[in-house]
Simulated assay, not measured.
Amino acid sequence: MIKTGVIGTVIAAICCFTPVLVIGLGVVGLSAWLGWLDYVLLPTLAIFIGITAYGLWRRRQSIACRQSDPEATKETG
């Protein structure tokens, strides 16, 4: 989940802060869509940042749970 969030955040940030989409959409003849990019990219960036934060929170909870329960870390057999 963390990998998905980080990769999505990086891609959305690159598209927001660089003219990658402006050049790409202009080349393929879809420059009329440029006015709508902010309505899509900024929420997408926020969603992927949220996914990353949730993944980090779950990982921290998992580590804390394993440290507080010594029986869960013992191997059985």
Results as ranks from 00 to 15, higher is better:
Ile63Thr: 13
Leu42Ile: 14
Ser31Val: 03
Lys3Phe: 11
Val28Tyr: 06
Cys15Glu: 04
Gly35Asp: 08
Lys74Leu: 15
Asp38Gly: 14
Asp69Arg: 12
Pro43Thr: 06
Ala12Asn: 03
Ile2Val: 10
Gly50Glu: 07
Asp38Gln: 11
Ser62Glu: 13
Leu37Gly: 01
Thr44Ile: 11
Ala13Tyr: 01
Thr9Val: 07
Lys74Phe: 06
Glu75Pro: 02
Arg59Pro: 01
Val6Met: 04
Leu37Tyr: 05
Ala53Met: 12
Leu30Gln: 14
Ser31Pro: 00
Cys15Lys: 00
Gly77Trp: 13
Gly26Lys: 02
Val6Glu: 00
Arg60Pro: 03
Leu41Tyr: 00
Ala13Arg: 01
Arg60Ala: 15
Val22Asn: 11
Thr52Arg: 00
Tyr39Phe: 14
Cys65Val: 08
Ile51Tyr: 10
Gly35Ala: 07
Ser68Thr: 10
Gly77Cys: 08
Leu45Asp: 00
Ile11Asn: 02
Tyr39Asn: 13
Ala12Tyr: 00
Leu21Arg: 00
Ala72Phe: 09
Val40Glu: 02
Lys3Pro: 02
Glu75Lys: 09
Gly50Val: 07
Tyr54Pro: 01
Gln61Glu: 15
Arg58His: 11
Ile14Asp: 04
Met1Gly: 07
Ile2Leu: 09
Ile63Lys: 14
Trp36Arg: 10
Phe48Cys: 02
Ala13Lys: 01
Gly8Glu: 01
Leu34Val: 05
Tyr54Gln: 12
Val27Met: 11
Tyr39Glu: 09
Arg59Met: 15
Arg66Val: 03
Thr52Glu: 01
Phe48His: 05
Cys15Ser: 12
Cys16Lys: 03
Thr4Pro: 00
Pro43Phe: 10
Val27Gly: 02
Ile47Lys: 06
Gly35Val: 04
Cys15Pro: 00
Thr4Gly: 08
Thr9Asp: 01
